[in-house]
Amino acid sequence: MEYNFQFGVLANYLPEFFGGLGLTLFLSFAGIFGGLGLGIACAIISVRGPLFPRAVVRIYVEIMRNTPMLVQIFVIFFGLPSLGVRLSPFTSVLVAIVLNNGGYIAEIVRAGIESIHPSQIEAAESLGLTRGQTMRFVILPPALERVMTPIISQSVLLMLATSLVSAVGVEDLTGVAMIASSETFRTMEIYLVIAVIYICLNFIFRILLNAVGLIVFKRSRQRFLGRV
């Protein structure tokens, strides 16, 4: 191989890369927590709600899970203006990421809720708890705790998927890399460095989200501390 790797040119783009990293982190966290909120709401509707909202949620979840996120971004960014809704590239990808993650989380949380034994709900009823209280204090905490691992995996995959926003010109980490590589022609160097950054983010997100899980859920924390 005759190629000389020159990583030096990357230094000129340092501010842009940090900006891109910031945007990737922002989109990831917004997507993870926004999607978590939306997903939990949808999961509750899909096990408890009246028929019509339940059908709407079902359709939403199936569309999100069975079409590529790239196409979802294109529909929202390029398609919606013809219906009179004009969003900036940044807003449209934010909406797409939250909606996409919401669909996946809804399905995960629904499985968690359905895994709670009916006797728990009967016990809550016999204590005179309202339906809302039962959901809030009896069903959701153990349900979410049970599906913590798949939620974390999904969140890390979402973080990696935020790289797709570069397709509509949003300058996240990948977007900045695309610009830098077209200006310097140091394509390999740039994408190798970007790949390493994403791999590091992958580990950081896993550790961080597991820590959040341990802080939120008392029983997981006790089990974890018991092992240490």
Partner: peptide, 12 residues
Amino acid sequence: VQGTPLLVLMFL
């Protein structure tokens, strides 16, 4: 491989 976004992997 799991830690690299597929898009970046594709560019590489």
